[in-house]
Simulated scan of single mutants.
Amino acid sequence: MRGLTGAGPGRARGSTQAVITAGAVLAAVVPFAAACGTGGTGARDEGPAHASAVAGAVASPSPSPSDTYRRVDAVALIKRDPEVSPAVKRELKPCSGEDYPVDVAYGDLTGGAVDDVVVNVLTCGDAVGIGSYVYRDVRGSYKNVFKAEESPVYAEIDKGDLSVTKQVYEKGDPVSSPSGENVITYSWSAGRFAQEHFHHNEYGNATGGQPTPVPDDN
């Protein structure tokens, strides 16, 4: 999994569109043709046709992916966000040339008219996640509605929910070999993300001791 140390089973990203940000301001809207799958893709899921539609009534058209997807300069977004810690901002530097270690995904997490933005800030050397953030469009500006800065951490869009993975270590574990991971699923409710599910995965190198969980500040 990108953003974690590579030990343990990887998890598929699903159909959510993800991009690597190069730091330049990208103002053009990019067609989002790949976003027509299920959950977290930016396109709204549609159920079976209603009886009125079958009978010939004109149904309201669903918004196209290009209507809901607006590409952002994730590096600038992180740097000007007061919710992001100074430590993460100090680490956000180009790895080579103008390439920043940032993963960006767009999708519907909060039910807004514009796709939400999930940003993961990574280290250059081993791509370990040091900060994960969710931004929601509020009247044309992006507002930070979620953050997790307990490294290693990585956030993804999973079928319309926010899935956050935090690796855990037993005493003596090297950084490259955590003993397991905590996977926490959040859903949007009453204007905030609320924890819905939690599960812990043990990796093959686990010795049977009690893992040290990463604290959850949300």
Score class of each variant (00 low, 15 high):
residue 190 A to C: 04
residue 172 G to Y: 04
residue 138 V to K: 08
residue 138 V to M: 02
residue 178 P to G: 10
residue 189 S to Q: 10
residue 139 R to I: 07
residue 86 P to K: 02
residue 130 I to P: 00
residue 59 A to W: 01
residue 127 A to H: 12
residue 191 G to N: 09
residue 125 G to V: 07
residue 183 V to G: 00
residue 95 C to H: 04
residue 209 G to L: 11
residue 50 H to F: 12
residue 120 N to A: 06
residue 25 V to C: 09
residue 88 V to K: 00
residue 102 V to Q: 00
residue 216 D to F: 04
residue 195 Q to F: 02
residue 61 P to C: 07
residue 186 Y to W: 15
residue 195 Q to L: 07
residue 189 S to G: 03
residue 148 A to H: 10
residue 23 G to D: 05
residue 192 R to H: 11
residue 157 I to L: 13
residue 66 S to W: 06
residue 57 A to G: 15
residue 102 V to M: 00
residue 118 V to G: 07
residue 152 P to D: 00
residue 143 K to S: 14
residue 25 V to W: 05
residue 132 S to D: 06
residue 60 S to D: 15
residue 75 V to W: 00
residue 44 R to Q: 15
residue 24 A to S: 09
residue 170 E to S: 11
residue 12 A to G: 13
residue 52 S to T: 07
residue 58 V to A: 15
residue 141 S to K: 15
residue 216 D to A: 02
residue 13 R to E: 11
residue 61 P to R: 15
residue 147 K to F: 03
residue 117 V to T: 01
residue 213 P to V: 11
residue 59 A to P: 07
residue 26 L to Q: 04
residue 122 L to I: 03
residue 28 A to E: 09
residue 26 L to Y: 01
residue 1 M to Q: 14
residue 13 R to A: 11
residue 55 A to Y: 13
residue 7 A to L: 03
residue 29 V to T: 14
residue 27 A to Y: 02
residue 138 V to G: 00
residue 179 S to T: 12
residue 21 T to A: 06
residue 19 V to F: 10
residue 22 A to E: 02
residue 102 V to H: 00
residue 58 V to D: 13
residue 4 L to R: 14
residue 216 D to I: 02
residue 18 A to Y: 04
residue 135 Y to V: 01
residue 159 K to M: 14
residue 98 E to Y: 10
residue 20 I to N: 09
residue 127 A to K: 08
residue 211 P to V: 14
residue 121 V to T: 13
residue 206 A to H: 14
residue 58 V to P: 09
residue 10 G to D: 14
residue 36 C to D: 06
residue 57 A to D: 15
residue 122 L to P: 01
residue 69 Y to P: 00
residue 34 A to G: 13
residue 207 T to E: 13
residue 44 R to H: 14
residue 108 D to Y: 01
residue 214 V to G: 07
residue 148 A to S: 12
residue 183 V to E: 03
residue 26 L to P: 00
residue 91 E to A: 12
residue 176 S to D: 09
residue 94 P to D: 04
residue 122 L to F: 03
residue 161 D to L: 13
residue 144 N to H: 05
residue 94 P to H: 06
residue 60 S to L: 14
residue 93 K to M: 10
residue 114 V to K: 11
residue 43 A to W: 10
residue 193 F to C: 07
residue 166 K to Q: 11
residue 181 E to L: 05
residue 69 Y to A: 04
